[in-house]
Amino acid sequence: MSKSLADNSYQIDKECLIDENEDVITSISMSTESDYFQEKKVEFSATDDKTGFVSFLWKNHIPEKIVFVLAVANLFVWAFGLCVVPWILPYYYTICAPILLALRIRWYLGPVKWHLFMLDFCYIANITCMVYLWAFPNNEHLFHMVFAMGNGPLLWAVALYRNSLVLHSLDKMTSIFIYLLPAYVTFGVRWYPELAGQHWYTIFLQQHTGPDLVWLVATPLALFVAHSMLYVFIIYIIVRPSDEYLDSYRYFTSDENSIQYKLANLFGPRMRLVVYYTVCYFMCTCMLLLTWMWYQYFVAHVVFLAIVFVGPNVERR
Rank of each mutant, 00 (worst) to 15 (best):
E20R: 11
C129N: 13
V232T: 09
V69H: 05
E244T: 11
L119V: 01
Q207L: 02
V239N: 05
F252A: 00
W191V: 05
M229C: 11
K3L: 11
A222M: 14
H227K: 13
W200N: 06
S9T: 05
E43F: 11
L57T: 10
P86W: 15
I203V: 12
Y91H: 13
P220G: 05
L288P: 09
F44H: 11
F267L: 13
R240Q: 07
L57V: 07
E244D: 13
L82Y: 12
E39Q: 05
V189D: 01
I237V: 02
I105K: 14
I235L: 07
M287G: 01
D49L: 04
L246N: 00
L170D: 02
H199Q: 06
F143L: 08
E315K: 10
Y245N: 03
Y249W: 11
L75P: 04
M130T: 13
T253C: 04
Y261C: 03
Y92S: 04
Y92W: 15
T26N: 10
Q207N: 11
F136D: 05
F76M: 10
S175P: 00
N313R: 08
R104W: 14
C122T: 07
Y277I: 00
I12G: 00
Y179N: 02
I99Y: 08
Y277C: 01
A148N: 04
L170V: 07
M229K: 09
C96P: 01
S242N: 08
S258H: 05
S228M: 12
E20A: 01
Y261A: 02
I88R: 08
V225K: 00
L89K: 11
V72W: 15
P312M: 13
S2N: 07
N151D: 00
L170F: 09
R317Y: 15
I62V: 15
L101Q: 14
L70V: 09
M293E: 13
V279D: 06
K65V: 00
D7S: 04
L213N: 07
Q198I: 09
V54N: 05
V189P: 00
F204G: 04
P182E: 01
E194W: 05
T32R: 04
N265V: 04
L160H: 13
S9Q: 09
V232C: 06
I99W: 12
M287S: 06
L100S: 03
L288I: 12
T174K: 01
L155T: 03
R272F: 07
V225G: 02
L246V: 08
V85G: 02
F37W: 12
I124T: 12
P63R: 06
P86T: 13
A6T: 08
V185L: 04
F204M: 08
F117M: 15
G152K: 11
P220S: 10
Y245L: 07
D212N: 14
S164V: 01
Y132H: 12
S9F: 04
E244K: 02
S31T: 15
H199E: 08
H227A: 03
Y201V: 10
P193M: 00
K262S: 08
K59N: 11
I28W: 09
Y277S: 00
G152V: 01
P86H: 14
G52S: 02
A226Q: 08
V72I: 14
L273W: 12
A226L: 15
F147S: 02
I95Y: 15
Q198E: 15
I178K: 00
S248Y: 09
L133Y: 09
M145N: 11
L103C: 13
K262I: 05
S31V: 09
S9P: 05
W134T: 01
I88E: 06
